[in-house]
């Protein structure tokens, strides 16, 4: 079985700070990590390899610094890592990102399975996984909550929806986006870290891929961010102390009055 895992490097979310003047993200001094939701996809890939054998390739698109995210994947046990890095990719929206990653997967393939996290914690779109499937004309199952098992030419997955779990049989090759429930990511081993330090990260540039240069990067992106701003803080927290019985009674009454006024009872 040959598996690709798509990963993204993101700023560590608890250390994100927003410049109150400009409303933009302060990037300096912020640690960059593998998108936490991609770790579940990496773990699912590793568990499939343990059961079924095969090879796992991690693929990312990003600046040269994203190499460290790929090394982190290697330290967990991924076999090979490839980074699509080219200044012409910069500013790509989800359409262009899916387009480039699909071209890279064609180049590196064939793969039986392409695994993705549910979404990245910075852009928070979840659009790249299904987009890649569409570009490659593959079936996709999103929100997969189990480590798939395999039948002849297919995989069986559980898909978490708003009201339960769908059980699906998906023909291979397929794209799966996985949720946290699927697996608990392992920690890198010491040997894995050593391997990661020396691992060769292959670089793919635009000319290595069958892509239309007018369809990549900021100028090829259908969408444009025109403005960012801080969300309006409309809530003024009314603090109700509740440290003794009398205060608790009073606080509870005030909550009930609040709910009654807003027709929430």
């Amino acid at each position: 079985m040959r598996i690709a895992v798509l990963i993204k490097q993101v700023p560590e979310s608890s250390s994100v700070r927003i410049d109150p003047e400009t409303g933009t993200m302060v990037r300096s001094g912020v640690e960059a990590v593998v998108n936490p939701l991609d770790l579940y996809a990496i773990e699912v890939a590793l568990m499939i390899r343990e059961r079924n054998g095969g090879e796992i390739v991690a693929l990312s698109m990003g600046p040269p610094a994203a190499e460290s995210a790929l090394r982190e994947a290697v330290s967990m046990g991924i076999d090979a890592a490839v980074l699509a890095a080219d200044r012409r990719f910069a500013g790509s929206d989800t359409w262009c990102t899916g387009y480039v990653l699909a071209a890279a997967l064609r180049k590196l393939g064939p793969f039986d399975l392409i695994l993705c996290g549910e979404r990245a914690t910075d852009g928070d779109t979840g659009q790249v996984g299904p987009g890649v499937a569409a570009f490659l004309d593959l079936p996709v199952a999103t929100y997969v909550s189990n480590v798939p098992d395999f039948g002849p030419g297919l995989c069986r997955v559980d898909r978490l929806t708003e009201d339960g779990y769908e059980h699906l049989e998906v023909q291979l090759p397929a794209v799966l986006t996985v949720v946290k429930e699927a697996a608990s990511p392992r920690l890198p081993t010491l040997r894995g870290k050593q391997r990661a330090r020396n691992a060769e990260i292959a670089i793919l540039r635009a000319e290595d891929l069958d892509v239309d240069l007018d369809r990549i990067g900021l100028k090829g992106s259908p969408t444009r961010v025109v403005r960012t701003f801080q969300p309006k803080v409309t809530r003024q927290c009314r603090r109700l102390p509740a440290r003794d019985d009398a205060e608790i009674e009073l606080a509870a009454d005030q909550v009930i009055e609040f709910l009654r006024q807003r027709n929430l009872l």
Partner: peptide, 15 residues
Amino acid sequence: PAIGGNIMASIRTPD
């Protein structure tokens, strides 16, 4: 909302 709801982004599709 973007970046975990820390900022709001206004987005257009020009062409």
